[in-house]
Simulated assay, not measured.
Amino acid sequence: MPDVVVSSGAHDASRLPAPVRSARELIPLLREHAAEADRTGRLSETVITAMRKAGLLSLRVPAVNGGPEADLRIAFEVHRNLAHGCGSAAWVAMILSGSSLIASQLGEEARQELWGTDPLAGVCSCLPLTGTAVESPQGVTVTGRWFPASGVHQSRWAVVAASRAGDSPVLAVVPVEAGVVEPTWATTGLRATRSDTLVLDDVFVPRRRVLPMQSLITGVRDPAHPARTAPSFLPAALVGVAAPLLGMAEFAVEQSREWLRGRAGEGNQRATSSAVLNALADASSRVDRAHRILDSLLTDVERSHEAQQPADALFRGRVRMLVALAAADLRDAVRGTLTVFGGYGMATSNPVERVWRDVETACTHVMVSMDRALDEYGPLLIQPRTP
């Protein structure tokens, strides 16, 4: 198994934060089950149980509610390391961790409802505005279909986005069992995420489990209740979604290096040809560049959180733009490793072939869309800085 390096530079496992150490320890198990997960389109219960027991599906649950309350960098490294074992497992863990951060903005009564009896209870999120919320004095009644609902099969709760007539959108936290999960996820990559469709029909959500959707941008400031205080979610989510991409690309490059070393040792001339070695050098360099971009963004977002000020539009646009650039590098790096392998690159027995499909699918996500990033960031560069 190739060494899994974390951005802190720590190679001694005993010095790593406990969640990162747990993620590294799970890599062999994830690899053992990855091919079957891809074939069957579902993560094994063995893998889910192991990640859940290690707290890796509830990383951002507040400590006051019994959760790990991991910070952004630790969560990033967990999901990056998990992706060395299985892209789908890392993606589900990333979604559930981020969703628990959103839900942590709720008040104490609602948070007790979510995690009071089980701090490891999973929370997924479905943020496309494809549902409606009808207001009442006590809360909202939510109806809609949300796709893709990554992590819904590992979650007890779901955060769904819904529009309101004549008012701003809301986030409603609902029990998954209050709806129906339709099997609609039939994709080329990330198959085992089972990102199916969550359907809700006239589900009442009490006011305590409703947040303004704007809180994703502004965060929540509640000095009287520090556990409810949360920074702007969007910049952290943008960087966080790239963590599984980075881990998968690192794994692909390491696998191609090991494969070439073996072929070169056997005297294979193609393995030492300039075309193949150039492809390897290009792929490796793209991963390094993406890593540096993302590590720098982690620092920027951490500083923004420490300032306890809402991230302005220009900052958010810059983060989105740089994340899209990093994702493009990682996508091209994985494509480049297929050149290194030659015909074997497309063999279903080659784990990098699965990684390639997973990365291509992940790169369709709006968070890493280059077109979306360019459309948002360009106009911001000539406008005054505004929240």
Score class of each variant (00 low, 15 high):
233 F>I: 12
233 F>A: 14
233 F>P: 01
234 L>K: 09
234 L>F: 03
235 P>S: 10
235 P>C: 10
235 P>I: 09
235 P>K: 09
236 A>K: 03
236 A>Y: 05
236 A>M: 03
239 V>C: 02
240 G>I: 02
240 G>P: 00
241 V>R: 11
241 V>F: 12
242 A>G: 02
242 A>S: 15
243 A>G: 05
243 A>E: 06
243 A>P: 05
243 A>W: 08
244 P>C: 05
245 L>N: 04
245 L>G: 03
245 L>R: 07
246 L>Y: 10
246 L>E: 12
247 G>R: 13
247 G>Q: 13
248 M>P: 10
249 A>G: 06
250 E>T: 10
251 F>N: 11
251 F>S: 14
252 A>H: 11
252 A>G: 07
253 V>Q: 10
253 V>S: 13
254 E>D: 15
254 E>N: 10
255 Q>V: 02
255 Q>L: 07
255 Q>A: 14
256 S>G: 06
256 S>M: 05
258 E>G: 13
258 E>S: 13
258 E>A: 15
260 L>N: 05
260 L>S: 12
261 R>V: 08
261 R>A: 14
262 G>W: 09
262 G>C: 02
262 G>N: 09
262 G>D: 14
262 G>P: 00
263 R>K: 14
263 R>F: 04
264 A>V: 03
264 A>M: 05
265 G>I: 00
265 G>C: 07
267 G>S: 09
268 N>Y: 00
268 N>I: 02
268 N>V: 08
269 Q>F: 06
269 Q>G: 05
270 R>I: 11
270 R>N: 08
271 A>K: 09
271 A>D: 07
271 A>S: 15
272 T>W: 09
272 T>V: 15
273 S>H: 10
273 S>T: 05
273 S>M: 06
273 S>L: 04
274 S>K: 14
276 V>G: 02
276 V>Y: 08
277 L>F: 07
277 L>A: 02
277 L>V: 13
277 L>Y: 09
278 N>P: 00
278 N>R: 07
280 L>G: 12
281 A>Q: 12
281 A>Y: 13
282 D>N: 07
282 D>C: 04
282 D>G: 00
283 A>H: 08
284 S>M: 01
285 S>A: 15
285 S>H: 15
285 S>Q: 13
285 S>F: 14
285 S>M: 08
286 R>A: 13
286 R>C: 06
286 R>T: 06
287 V>T: 06
288 D>W: 11
288 D>S: 14
288 D>C: 04
289 R>H: 15
289 R>I: 07
290 A>K: 01
290 A>Q: 03
290 A>C: 03
291 H>V: 00
292 R>S: 11
292 R>L: 11
292 R>M: 05
292 R>E: 09
293 I>S: 01
294 L>K: 01
294 L>R: 01
294 L>V: 00
295 D>T: 13
295 D>S: 12
296 S>I: 00
296 S>H: 10
296 S>M: 04
298 L>S: 00
299 T>Y: 00
299 T>A: 10
300 D>Q: 05
301 V>A: 00
